Simulated assay, not measured.
Amino acid sequence: MALTPLQPVVFFGFHKRMSVTVVGTVEGGRTPTKIKPDLKKAIVNLACHPRLPVLYVAYTEGLIRAYNIHTYAVHYTLQLDNTIKLIGAGAFAFHPTLEWIFVGDRQGTLLAWDVSTERPSMIGM
């Protein structure tokens, strides 16, 4: 499940399924909508950026896509190189003042990306 302060909606998905459901949180708000991402990979985690209109969806095999929360268009993909194997994103965290995202898995891997540009880059692991 993921919440954003930018819209009165909640995003949720069932573990290892291939869609995200968007539900309005106010009476008379948005009716439930299913987002079927273009990837045919199972979703393992969701997170919304606390200040930007971005929904992060983590897929199996270590792939993370950033979607615009208004249009559901893909902003960018955070792709891991072949030397790093993120086994499903177990946790997302955002730096409180910088546009950085941290992603960890249950194997103890922690990665960080600078997402302040149109082409995010990995800044550490």
Score class of each variant (00 low, 15 high):
G29N: 06
L55V: 07
K85L: 02
G29D: 07
S116D: 11
T83P: 03
V23G: 06
Q107E: 12
A112G: 04
T97M: 05
V22Q: 13
P120Q: 11
Y56G: 05
T109V: 08
L98Q: 15
D38C: 01
W100E: 12
V20N: 03
V54L: 10
Q107T: 13
Q107K: 14
L110R: 00
P5Y: 03
G29A: 06
A42K: 13
S19V: 02
R51Y: 14
I64M: 13
E99L: 13
K36V: 07
P8F: 06
H15D: 14
L86K: 02
L39S: 05
Y76W: 12
A91P: 01
L3C: 14
Y59Q: 00
R119H: 12
L3R: 02
A89W: 02
P8N: 15
K41C: 01
V9C: 12
L78H: 09
V26G: 01
T33W: 03
A112R: 08
Q7C: 04
T33C: 04
P96Y: 06
H70S: 13
A66R: 03
F94C: 06
K16T: 10
T60P: 04
Q79C: 02
S121H: 14
I84V: 10
I64D: 07
P32N: 07
D105P: 11
P50R: 02
P32H: 02
T60S: 05
Y76Q: 08
E61N: 15
T4I: 00
I87F: 13
I64L: 11
V44M: 10
Y59M: 00
P96L: 14
F92M: 11
V54H: 07
E61P: 04
P5V: 09
F12S: 11
K40E: 04
V10E: 02
L86M: 15
A91W: 06
V44H: 06
D105F: 10
P53R: 00
L46F: 12
